[in-house]
Computed example of a mutant assay.
Amino acid sequence: MKYVAVSLVTAAVAVGGFAFVAVPRLLRTESTSTVGSTGAVSRAEVEKQVRENYSVPLIQEKPKSVSCAGGLKAWQNDSVECTVTSGNGKQQKVMVSVTKAKGNSVSYDYAVLAD
């Protein structure tokens, strides 16, 4: 499996001696959930969060559907592969990985997988 890195171009503008840097937000890649009684974030919750927070790059279109292989355990670096389907039916694989687990809270990030 390969991860695809997306390079963002930044623009700096000087106004009245101050420099402002604009970084376009092409893809939101983070969610936080509460761990259930099983000590994990359920598959349904992961799919819901990806569907609500993942946008197709450049278009900012929410996915039509998301299907994940399972849930996420509440420990750092646990991961699950998901398939995101856009409105036009195109599918994209993403890896959802835990970035932080503290108490009942789990934060996770998405990375697009190369074919």
Rank of each mutant, 00 (worst) to 15 (best):
M1T: 08
K2C: 04
K2G: 06
K2V: 01
V4D: 11
S7A: 13
L8R: 15
L8A: 13
V9D: 11
T10N: 14
V13K: 13
V13D: 08
A14Q: 13
A14I: 09
V15D: 08
G17Y: 14
G17M: 14
F18S: 11
F18T: 11
F18H: 11
F18G: 01
F18A: 12
A19F: 06
F20L: 15
F20P: 07
A22V: 10
P24E: 05
P24F: 03
R25Y: 07
L27H: 07
E30V: 15
S33H: 02
S33K: 08
S33P: 00
V35C: 01
S37N: 15
T38C: 07
T38K: 07
T38A: 15
T38V: 06
G39K: 09
G39D: 15
A40I: 02
A40E: 10
A40G: 03
A40K: 05
V41F: 05
S42C: 10
S42P: 13
R43W: 00
R43C: 05
A44G: 09
E47A: 10
Q49E: 12
V50L: 06
R51H: 09
E52G: 06
E52Y: 02
N53D: 04
Y54K: 02
Y54I: 04
Y54Q: 01
L58A: 05
L58Q: 06
I59Q: 04
Q60K: 10
K62N: 11
K62D: 12
P63V: 01
P63H: 02
S65I: 03
S65Q: 05
V66M: 07
C68W: 02
C68Y: 05
C68R: 07
G70R: 11
G71M: 05
K73P: 11
K73F: 12
K73M: 12
K73I: 13
A74C: 13
A74I: 10
W75Y: 14
W75N: 14
Q76P: 08
S79K: 15
S79H: 14
V80W: 01
C82A: 05
C82L: 06
C82R: 00
T85N: 00
G87K: 02
G89P: 04
G89E: 01
K90S: 03
Q92P: 04
Q92M: 06
V94E: 00
M95L: 12
M95C: 02
V96N: 01
V96G: 01
V96K: 04
V98P: 03
T99S: 13
T99E: 08
K100S: 13
K102Q: 15
K102F: 13
S105R: 06
V106P: 05
S107G: 13
S107K: 07
Y108N: 03
D109T: 12
A111S: 11
V112C: 01
V112F: 00
L113S: 00
A114V: 05
